[in-house]
Design a protein around this nucleic acid. Structure first.
Lengths: 230, 230, 230, 230
DNA sequence: TATGAATGAGAATTCATTCAT
DNA sequence: TATGAATGAATTCTCATTCAT
């Protein structure tokens, strides 16, 4: 009876009965948790909702993750792991310094757009003063390769005369992230204050262009011969 | 007994000036709410804690603010009103375009440092998709004068040749806010990932310098005569 | 029967509506908790049951006692306070040493019969290794006056030749408690093993006589002149 | 993979002797259950903990014992069987009546010290009003031989003039058990109230001496010739 | 205006037990 | 025989809100 009801809800082929596949169940719960925590924050997330979102039940959640807090940590770890993986696919050093920086800006922008959960989860974790991150060896070991890559790009650009000197790669990296982050993370209040047009698809390109112009306008030295006249 | 003692402490006769207790109680609760919502977000904030933080009681809170949500809205309105007031004290148009922009960056940076609650409250409101802001006529009427001021600065700079052309004041305003916001709002996770040294007082100045260099490096045209040679 | 008894407790005149008498509500909850913990032990007791037994609700229980564990502690404290009060009403020193000891035995026996909760609560607390008692300053300060009283009786008896010498009052006190405690605390298993007749009202007197004979038979020296012959 | 590895470790071929795993598993679970129920009582015991304590799993526990309650019953039966076995090794009738009683006291004392689980399990069963015992034919058939033995000792002692008359062997048996039981079962609260020194090893001997003196002081008639004079 | 008492609905977490392999 | 996965029903505890004085 119960089985019938349940099976009608879920397609017979995929999940008629309990999965009995630990890894899969765990992954499903984790994915549901990512959505829930991203949408409602740590405090606002509901364990019940995560379980039913995952097509599982609360008990399984505790079976695999022990507590809501630890589940949140697992979510953070997955989120960090995901972005690190995406970063590794970037080959910024294949291009010219200018092109490399341009691609980094674009990557950041597009990643944040494709993964809005990253922004809200990070906000949540900061609201809690990075309490969970502090306890996670895993995350602390996941260093982003991008700071070093950006450092290499800056050095190359300086050497070939295209970039100005004296730029700290960490500060610049943070600035690049900032420009995308703020715009997307605060889109609801920004839309309210400056009008929803700001978030049309056309405006998205405009924002990307602006950010690129800002960063490259700062970095790139006017080329020789490009004498500036009045 | 206790009541008598308490009331004598707050009795109009002993107060220095005939302060309206009602207004004072309301303000105290609001101030406590700002702290609580800033610290814990909307979901994590506790009505009990606000009441006791205010040295008052829950009944008063409901008496003046009707519900937790409306109290949150009041908090947002106060927070926006505060920053608008601070912005009005700025006289960016008294200075040169370059100096005006520099001051705007500095103001933003320092305001965010002095008012960390602004950042977390905004994050909270965005988590809730600006649900409260949408309902607040008051906030929507509180337009920031800075976009227009920045537009004027950009136009002046363009005219006097110091600034590049084609810069959208809104985009630039958002970028300026971004650079401070991200760094401060995510300080806990950033400290965890890049080390706590990033947030020493010395580093603060470095961040401000970097942001200023970035924005002005982009905006300011190399001066005439500053010919670039091989 | 039970309904009648219960409803009389809540007669319309006394508690039709919420009591709004903090002390009374608290006391009612505490009384209900004594019953529930005594019946089911700490682990087996149900917070819901306590609340409804008290004609109140769970929330009030937490309002006044913070947690199940702290409520249990309050119950222990009350239980200890009760027996100490009862002990203070005893005037053992008014009687002869023999009579004094007899009365102590009788008091212990009757108190344990009248207060079966004392036995089970003590068992529970010992199961938990006196975890709660350790935290209770109140209980540690509630010293029983009976050890000292018993010491005085023993000294007097020794002096007037009625009691043997070399008896440690603490050991004897513990033994007196033991004799009643074991019989009553284990009555269910004893009845199962030795038959329920052991707990008839007639047998109760027999037990009291036996315990008195045992203790006094040990303490009291055969009187002079009562020569023992073959 | 993991399963294969595990089962190969326990395969009959690698075991030293061809032990019947079934019996062993059952015994291991039972032993673990004794500990767990003794420590936490019936209500506080956790099926999970028993399984992992036994190095086994919950399914096996249910396979062999059907339910938590039945497992508790099995534990009680084992506990009773153990003490009956130990009692049978006593040969109290080999000695003089006085010596026989002395040995019985000592045996009780030492058995309770060596088997603290007996005390807590009995307390648990009494908290549940001997519910399980009532259902166990096995236990009801396991009569203690000691009542009869004690009866014989008392009769002999009366006949040879060493013991007083009119002593009910059951009452005395219960008293002897009481004196050890109470002291040991309530050791945690007693230590809290009277200080931990009461449970030093030295004090243990003092307690045994006291109990023996008490019982024999009551039982033994002053010897003939030991006329009491003025 | 002020305050402590009271509450229902809901939150996280736990538990004994069963299922599938 | 053995094992990990799965679950419904409780269980403790929390929270925003309202009531009585």
């Amino acid at each position: 009876m119960k089985t019938a009801a349940t099976s009608s809800l879920r397609s017979p082929r995929t999940a008629v009965r309990p999965v009995r596949d630990a890894e899969r169940t765990k992954a499903t719960i984790l994915a549901a948790a990512v959505r829930e925590f991203a949408r409602h924050g740590l405090g606002g997330a509901r364990v019940d909702r995560i379980a039913s979102l995952a097509g599982s039940n609360k008990r399984m959640l505790y079976y695999y993750f022990s507590s809501k807090e630890k589940l949140f940590l697992a979510v953070l770890e997955k989120t960090y792991a995901d972005i690190r993986t995406a970063e590794q696919a970037l080959n910024l050093l294949d291009a010219s310094p200018t092109e490399g920086v341009r691609r980094l800006i674009e990557f950041t922008w597009k990643y944040f757009i494709a993964h809005p959960e990253f922004l809200t989860l990070l906000n949540s974790e900061n609201l809690h003063q990075a309490r969970h991150l502090k306890r996670s060896k895993r995350i602390r070991e996941m260093n982003s390769p991008l700071i070093e890559t950006l450092g290499t790009l800056l050095a190359r650009g300086r050497r070939d005369g295209s970039f100005r000197s004296g730029v700290d790669p960490l500060q610049l990296y943070i600035s690049i992230a900032s420009l995308s982050y703020f715009f997307l993370s605060n889109r609801h209040t920004l839309a309210q204050v400056f009008g929803p047009a700001l978030f049309s698809t056309a405006q998205r390109d405009i924002r990307l262009e602006h950010m690129t112009a800002l960063v490259l306008g700062y970095l790139v030295r006017p080329q020789a011969g490009a004498t500036i006249r009045r």
